[in-house]
Design a binder for these strands. Sequence first.
RNA 1: GGUCGGUUAGCCGAGUGGUUAGGCAACGGUCUGCAAAACCGUCUACAGCGGUUCGAAUCCGCUACCGACCUCCA
Length: 489
Amino acid sequence: MEKLFIYNTASRKKEEFIAQVENHAGMYVCGPTVYGDAHLGHSRPAITFDLLFRYLTYIGYKVRYVRNITDVGHLENDADEGEDKIGKKARIAQLEPMEVVQYYTNRYRENMRQLNVLPPSIEPQASGHIIEQQAMVDQILKTGFAYEVNGSVYFDVEKYNTKYHYGKLSGRVLEDLYSTTRELDGQSEKKNSFDFALWKKANPEHIMQWPSKWSEGFPGWHLECSVMSTKYLGEVFDIHGGGLDLMFPHHECEIAQSVAANGHESVKYWMHNNMITINGQKMGKSLGNFITLDELFSGSHQLLEKTYHPMTIRFFILQAHYRNPLDFSNEALQAAEKGLDRLFNALKTLHKISENGTSSAFDIKKWRDKCFDAINDDLNTPILIAHLFDAVKFINSVAAGSAQITGDDLILLRKLMNDIIFSILGLKNTSENTALDEKFDDVVSLLLEIRQEAKKDKNWSLADKIRDELLERGIVIKDTKDGYEWSFK
RNA sequence: GGUCGGUUAGCCGAGUGGUUAGGCAACGGUCUGCAAAACCGUCUACAGCGGUUCGAAUCCGCUACCGACCUCCA
């Protein structure tokens, strides 16, 4: 099996991935809070961990991938005084909270499908695990790291920190938090402002609440991940992923909860993807500077110069390393689009060319090792893609007759290119047609056949007319050596 | 203010103590009725100032600038 090294946020080092259970890998990734459409930022963790999911599977692990849907307990603004995000949306839209949840969950899944992100093995919802969350609150109360006030239960960070280190993941020291954590307006029920809710008593008008021994209420946001990861992956599991912005306080709180409840940590490898920025600033819902995925795919945002195919987005994201920030721009996206086209054209060429020599001008086995070294090095897809373009150049040279390839090498190169591009990187051909498109393709092809005949008769005015008129309707004609190609503008 | 990270050619974006990352754009060429596309070739940068070293863009220090987290966030 390939030796995979991944950067563990907990140790700030690249570590060899060694599974808890041989040949099995467990992954938990923080999914979306379903109160709005997914934006470009959401695509990064989805694609990053989809890549990991695919790669672990590819190299032979049986992977259980859990990605949650947050549908309750996630508060707006201040951690304790804010309104539940789903509840707020439901109130404004005059819908049942679960209608909001269902609507945005469906849309999220559709966007993920478009990005060719595989569905996780399990996609649990917080609202479906209220009982388990209550059990964990109980457990933490029992071990003494939580306290109850007026029907709400809070995690006692200060007490926890006397025995363990609260802040170890994000490198925070509790003493600093005293001065940097914002004080709440009015009197808080909490002993300290950095304590966080495990169970919140709901106001009577709160539309999402469940009975419990403490109060009619709802679980705290951080709890769901601790509970659902444990339930489906065990008390100790391999990988926990999520956006860098969740490291503190969300993941820190998860660690504290697990340790308080079970006496030990659950996660072996913490992985965090970096942010997507726009004009150098983080793209986020609360900042109002985000572009939704639907807007990207349809070009309907004022910042967009054109529509972008979901695969362009995927390739754009894979061309940067997941731990570095990635800045959005039309120019960068269009560069990715053209590069991806070039890659797929070469792939098409690769299946057309045939053996043309007794030795190859390109050491395929060495190239293979370089590709896997790249991805094994903390999923370094930019390097991997750079290697793919080395192969592209070679393939084109073979097609042009200026390089040789043996039959065995051709078979090997085809397999490797397919494996890397489709199975591992999860890219899809952008010109894949549906049944409806085939009819359309037929009609356009008919016009282009007529144009070919006109060209043969040197009837340039008719040939140009067809080309120009189609262009006016958004269809671009490209003549090739042995025919033509067309695409939408 | 605290903590952490970053500053790479026109743009995006990797990486390494000494040898061309890659993509896009640009330029030159091949092909072509024209155009586009495609293909081939060219383009050698690492914020500033010190230090370590035979050698640093790569390690260390300082300065400047940028960002993330510290409140919900992918």
